[in-house]
Simulated assay, not measured.
Amino acid sequence: MVEKLMGLPRSRTVVHPGPFRPVRIDRMRDEKGRHFRLSLPGGRTLHESLVQALADEGVASASMTLLGGELAELGFCLALPDPTGRVLATYGAPHTVHGACFIFGNATLGSSASGTPVVHCHGAFRTAEGAVRGGHILTDRTVVGRRSVTAVVTALDSFELRVVYDDETRMPLMRPQARRIHG
């Protein structure tokens, strides 16, 4: 009844294609939980800005909220059901918009299996034409504009986030892992 009143479609039901995993969400606790705010300047990609600013703070893994700012160029795509059922979801074709206003986003900094920094981000934005959109933000294709983007950061110092293959979704996912000893 609520769906009909609000005119909204029913949410999609997702069935994981791989073997059932009794613990779906891995969690670890960081005793320090350093928090700070960054102002990401214009002219660089979100990926470059976040990775560099966080590296300067000694942070390799973090959870972030991104707020406001202008995006000179914004790359994004949408997660779509995989028609083959082989994986949980697949990303649609990338889209590019210019002159977007960033409304809100959540981002996670971690690393690939080889140790390369990875920034995963979902967000909402307003296009130059006024349409409100959202999706998976392609941080390496998104350039901050004249008004800086604010990042509210929680550093994860006692463990790290790493992209690993997940059997249940059959996709690479960012998961908490014991910190690797570098030396």
Rank of each mutant, 00 (worst) to 15 (best):
L71K: 03
V149I: 15
C121Q: 03
G110K: 02
H136G: 00
D82M: 09
S158I: 00
T150S: 14
G130D: 10
T96H: 11
G123K: 05
G68P: 10
L71N: 06
C77Q: 03
F76V: 06
A89H: 11
L66C: 04
I103R: 07
D82V: 09
D157Q: 07
H98L: 12
T116P: 05
C121T: 08
R147F: 04
A72T: 09
S114W: 04
L71V: 08
T154L: 12
L88R: 14
R141A: 14
S111I: 02
H95D: 08
R133I: 06
L161Y: 08
V153I: 13
T139Q: 06
G92Y: 13
A93Q: 06
E73D: 02
C101Q: 11
G145T: 07
I137A: 01
T65S: 11
V152Y: 05
V119H: 08
C101H: 14
G105P: 02
T139S: 08
G130L: 14
T108H: 10
R146M: 01
L109I: 08
G110M: 02
L88D: 07
R141E: 13
L88S: 13
L109E: 05
A79H: 00
R141Q: 15
P94K: 13
C77E: 03
T142L: 01
D140S: 11
G134H: 11
F159C: 05
T108G: 03
F159S: 01
V132C: 10
V153D: 08
V132I: 15
S148R: 04
T142A: 03
F104E: 09
T116K: 15
I137C: 00
T116W: 13
P83H: 13
A89P: 00
G85W: 08
T150F: 03
E160P: 03
T150D: 11
E73L: 09
P117E: 03
Y91Q: 12
T65V: 12
G145R: 09
V143Q: 00
Y91I: 02
T139A: 12
L109S: 04
H95P: 00
H98W: 06
G92N: 13
H136Q: 04
V144T: 09
C77Y: 00
S112H: 02
G115F: 10
F104D: 06
G145A: 12
C121Y: 01
